[in-house]
Design a protein around this nucleic acid. Structure first.
Lengths: 372, 372
DNA sequence: TGCGTTTCCGCAATCGTTTGTGTAACCTGC
DNA sequence: GCAGGTTACACAAACGATTGCGGAAACGCA
């Protein structure tokens, strides 16, 4: 009688043509076994518990019915979800999509899928989003929105939620992070400027509640010392957010203060683009009057005017690496958390040139490298 | 005895410090009612079924325990999820993040959250992703990845899945879509070029399996006719994808073919940037030798070199509008599906200028508008 | 007092899985 | 022929919510 197993199921004739998706029970019925057996037969991990012959029968039944397990029911039962949350502070920042893609590419083949949320840099929204992730039983978190002190994330980590930070890290070091080697990046950038002849280099520091903001600022001071350059506090302006508008505001502030500098190291590319605006507004040309260096090498900064000299970080690879680490942590929860620093490189474009001015006789504004 | 209601729950002393999240049963226990009553008390929609006094008690209990309903259990029981899927073809295309943000901003206050997936323009991946959304019981779909003929989406729509398309639409008109007024945009762009004096205008058509690609191509032909311009088939090249590289390839092809034109209307901004590359590679300057017009006005094209003249579409608003329509459809499933066309505007920057050449005596290449 | 209505709440089934336990049937070896 | 051990499956209890149904109070009214 199992041949017409579906008959008992056709009682819902009141519903629309939409056919109910087959459940495990349907599969079991068709294969003539108990749902429990069907479950075990379908799960590669428990297949050994059921007779080979029966397993094949179940699998065939499942295929013929087009059975797809219901992840919701499974989650409810197992408290797991085969998905991990990806917390992005701002999707419209071109830095993040490539990272997300790296995460997805690595997670997919492992059977996990990524659950992307956008916090908009808003703590309240972040709280809601992350809570939503948690209640959906995500098995881990990849977070690009960390601040140095971040109670929410710290609590989560303390509760044992597997977590990997990307791009930014926490002050406490017990949460693994995948970041670019910011300090080296800054050092290289400053060296580049020094080699061009700059001695008064300003810095647009990013928000100091983010590790990137702090680390880059410190590295800037260190680099200045290393090169024996004057470390004038008046050459630093701190931005409240990683946005173009803040970059413009901060550089304008520096300019208004009468700070004298021939180059500015921006905390990231967006701030650097803000510098362009502030400079243009005052009729200062880049790189003739002021050289600008960015950080991150986000998409399109190679095509802006002038093409931005910046520190390239491996966006995609950061995502890949973070996903990989999270997967390892899921497989072996006792594994010691380690953080990794990915290598960076300076990509010199046209926003940097020798400083203007009387220092050397060649002070012409047209020192732009002839290459390109 | 209810004062120590938690006592019975502390049997899991073998587990780690991780405390079990309170369930509805815990709340009920503490309030001294049955879970069913607690459920009704907590749900604004059924609160009227329970005594006001009791409801307050339950709510207080819930608050004091920090109770958060388990959306998974709820989904399983109700087959709903309070979330909707957002299907993006490529998150690294700056066109989409603003749309996503519009969607999220509109969905959030309505109590829904967005589930973003990336198909990478890969049908297989798309199938997997969308299936995953479906099995997670998303209540509707906002799709930016539509092709003109798209069996997967058509099937979903036929099955009654509420769905709104953004940016691109299907050939069949029974699935609502929110798009920009592409035809008008093209008309305005062509008129702009004509007014500058161009008569031979090329077009880099986008993939013809997308509505945007087709509509814009048609509008291009129409505009040419309207202005009495020669409609030379040799002036059109079709791109296989909406990427910068394809834009470069297609324009190079046109150039290699010996096509003669003074302006090119690119199917979108990415293709336009590709044009820049192809032109630069041949030593042709923009806009002096060739004017270029893009479409979409994605972030950063105002800062590239030269700043791109393009048709602005209301990215964010497209997202908002789509979410709004989807919400309406969820509230009233029988509502007639309507599509909306959002207005566009031309934003003239520096990639367009009068054509070069002997036509008028002023053929100097320095016709760039002096403003800015 | 008795009967019909409300009002309020508890009971229990249910959503679709997973998984611990129970138990036939079968084998093995003495 | 039977103790002891596998093997292969079924049973049923979860996971945490929602919801139809039914019944006990409480109430209204004659």
């Amino acid at each position: 009688m199992t041949g017409v197993a579906r008959a008992g199921r056709e009682t819902d004739l009141g519903t629309l043509p939409t056919v109910r998706r087959p459940t495990l029970r349907d599969v079991a019925e068709r294969a003539g076994v108990h749902p429990a057996t069907a479950s075990r037969a379908l799960n590669p991990h428990t297949r050994e518990l059921v007779n080979d012959e029966t397993a094949k029968r179940v699998i065939r039944a499942a295929r013929s019915l087009g059975y797809r397990p219901n992840p919701i029911a499974r989650s409810l039962k197992t408290s797991r979800s085969a998905s991990i949350g990806v917390v992005i502070p701002d999707l419209t920042n071109p830095l993040f999509p490539p990272i997300v893609r790296g995460v997805e590419d690595e997670l997919g083949p492992a059977g996990y899928n990524a659950w992307i949320v956008n916090t908009d840099n808003d703590p309240e929204r972040e709280g809601a989003q992350v809570e939503s992730l948690r209640s959906r039983q995500v098995e881990g978190l990849i977070v690009a929105a960390a601040r140095r002190s971040h109670p929410l994330l710290e609590d989560f980590a303390a509760e044992g939620m597997p977590m990997v930070l990307v791009n930014r890290r926490l002050d406490r070091t017990d949460v693994p992070a995948v970041t670019a080697d910011d300090a080296t990046g800054v050092a290289v950038a400053v060296r580049h400027l020094v080699e061009l002849g700059h001695r008064r280099i300003a810095h647009l520091a990013g928000p100091q509640d983010t590790s990137t903001g702090l680390v880059r600022l410190r590295a800037y001071h260190q680099a200045l010392r290393d090169h024996g350059l004057p470390d004038d506090p008046g050459l630093v302006a701190t931005c409240d957010s990683w946005t173009l508008a803040e970059g413009a505001r901060a550089l304008a502030l520096l300019l208004d203060r009468g700070a004298r500098f021939t180059a500015v190291l921006a905390g990231n590319d967006l701030l650097a683009l803000g510098c362009y605006d502030a400079l243009e507004e005052r009729g200062l040309s880049c790189p003739e009057a002021v050289s600008v260096v960015g950080f991150n090498d986000i998409p399109f900064v190679d095509r802006v005017r002038p093409p931005l000299t910046t520190v390239r970080i491996p966006h995609y690879q950061i995502g890949v690496e973070a996903a990989r680490m999270l997967l390892e942590a899921l497989r072996d929860p006792d594994r010691h958390p380690r953080s990794v620093l990915l290598p960076v490189s300076l990509v010199v474009r046209q926003s940097t040139a020798a400083p203007p001015g009387p220092r050397d006789g060649r002070g012409s504004p047209s020192l732009r490298p002839a290459t390109v």
